[in-house]
C-alpha cells in the first residue's frame, strides 16, 4: 500500500455501485417507469397534436388573444410580433413542439409542486426533509441524470418532459411554501374565528392570498423549463433545442441562430403572459379578468 499516494486507489467504488443499482432497477422495475410515462405522454401528445396540426394562423391568433387577455393590448402586440417572427424564420413547427413540452412540464410541475409546497408550509418537518431534495434537483448537473433517464424511460419527447420536470419543479414548490407562510396570521385566524375548517381556510383565504407568489414560482418553473430545451435535445427531444444542437454539431451558425432566436422569442411571450396571470385583482383596479381584454370587449358588445 502506497501511503504517499493513498487516494490513487479507489477505496469506495461509488460509480460501480450506482452502475449495479441502476442495472438492477432497469432489469426489474422498468415497467414502473414506463407506467409513470403514461400521463406525461397523454398530455404531451394532446398538446403537440393540437398545436402542430391546427392551422398556423389560428394558433397564432389564439396565442395573441390569450396574451391580450392576460396582460392587456400591449402584451398582445408583443406576442403577435414575437410569434410572427418565429413563423417567418421558419421555426414555427419546432417552436410548437417546444411550447407543448414546456406547457406539459408546467402542468405537471404545478399539479405536483403546489400541493407539495402547501404541505411543506404546514409541516415544518416535511419541509426540512424536502429542502435538501429540492437543492439536489436544482444543483445536480442535468447531464448526470440524462443517462439513467434514458435507460429507464427511453429516449424521445416524453423523456425530455421528465428531465425538464426534475429540473424545473423546485421553484414552484419553494415559492408556494413561501407564499403560504407569508399570509398574514390574523387573516388565517379571522377565517378560523368565523368557523372555517382547515380546508376552507386554505382554499378561501390562504391560497388566494398566496397566489401572486405561487404564480411567480410557476413563472420561474417555466423559465427553467425553457432553459432545459437545448440540453434535453441530447436525448433526441425535437423542437427548437434540436435546431440549436444540430446547428452546433454541423457548425451551421444559421440554423443554430434561428433556433436560438426562436427560444428567445418564445421565452419572452411565455414569461410575460405567465407573469400577468399572477397579478392580483387589486393590481388591476379590482376589475375581474372577464371584464377586460378581448373577453371584456365581447361581453360589452353582447350587452349592447
Amino acid at each position: 500500500m502506497d501511503l504517499w499516494n493513498i487516494f490513487d486507489t479507489e477505496w469506495v467504488p461509488v460509480g460501480v455501485w450506482v452502475e449495479t443499482a441502476l442495472q438492477w432497477v432497469v432489469a426489474n422495475f422498468r415497467f414502473v417507469f414506463q407506467a409513470i410515462k403514461v400521463p406525461f405522454d397523454l398530455v404531451l401528445t394532446a398538446l403537440e397534436d393540437g398545436l402542430t396540426e391546427a392551422p398556423d394562423l389560428l394558433v397564432l391568433a389564439l396565442i395573441v388573444l390569450i396574451a391580450w387577455q392576460a396582460g392587456g393590448r400591449r402584451l398582445g402586440i408583443i406576442a403577435a410580433a414575437c410569434m410572427t417572427a418565429i413563423g417567418l424564420m421558419g421555426a414555427w413547427e419546432e417552436s410548437m413542439t417546444t411550447l407543448s413540452i414546456v406547457l406539459t412540464c408546467v402542468v405537471f410541475c404545478s399539479l405536483i409542486g403546489i400541493p407539495l409546497g402547501v404541505l411543506a408550509a404546514k409541516r415544518d418537518r416535511f419541509w426540512m426533509v424536502l429542502q435538501p431534495v429540492l437543492d439536489l434537483m436544482q444543483t445536480i448537473p442535468s447531464f448526470v441524470y440524462l443517462v439513467p433517464i434514458v435507460m429507464l424511460f427511453s429516449i424521445g419527447n416524453v423523456s425530455g418532459v421528465i428531465v425538464t420536470f426534475i429540473y424545473a419543479l423546485p421553484p414552484v414548490v419553494r415559492l408556494t411554501n413561501l407564499g403560504i407562510r407569508q399570509v398574514r396570521p390574523d387573516m388565517v385566524e379571522a377565517a378560523r374565528a368565523f368557523g372555517a375548517s382547515n380546508r376552507q381556510t386554505l382554499y378561501k383565504v390562504e391560497l388566494p392570498l398566496a397566489l401572486p407568489t405561487i404564480m411567480a414560482g410557476v413563472n420561474q418553473t417555466i423559465m427553467m423549463a425553457l432553459s432545459m430545451v437545448v440540453v434535453s435535445s441530447m436525448i433526441s427531444v425535437t423542437g427548437l433545442g434540436q435546431m440549436v444542437l444540430r446547428g452546433i454539431g454541423r457548425l451551421d451558425m444559421g440554423l443554430a441562430t434561428v433556433g436560438g432566436l426562436g427560444i428567445v422569442f418564445l421565452a419572452i411571450v411565455i414569461d410575460r403572459v405567465s407573469q400577468s396571470f399572477g397579478q392580483s385583482a387589486r393590481a388591476r383596479n379590482h376589475q375581474k379578468w372577464y371584464e377586460t381584454g378581448p373577453v371584456g370587449a365581447v361581453r360589452a358588445l353582447v350587452r349592447k
Binding site: 385566524e189 379571522a190 368565523f194 375548517s197 376552507q200 383565504v205 392570498l209
Partner: peptide, 30 residues
C-alpha cells in the same frame, strides 16, 4: 364560532381579495 360568536380584530383582518359582501358573509359561506 360561526353562529354564536362574532369576532373583531385589532388590525381589521379583512380579506383583501374579497369584496365587503364576501368578507361579511364569510361566516355564513362556510
Amino acid at each position: 364560532r360561526a353562529e354564536t360568536i362574532g369576532m373583531v380584530f385589532q388590525h381589521m383582518a379583512l380579506w383583501p381579495h374579497r369584496t365587503l359582501g364576501e368578507n361579511v358573509g364569510f361566516g355564513l359561506e362556510v
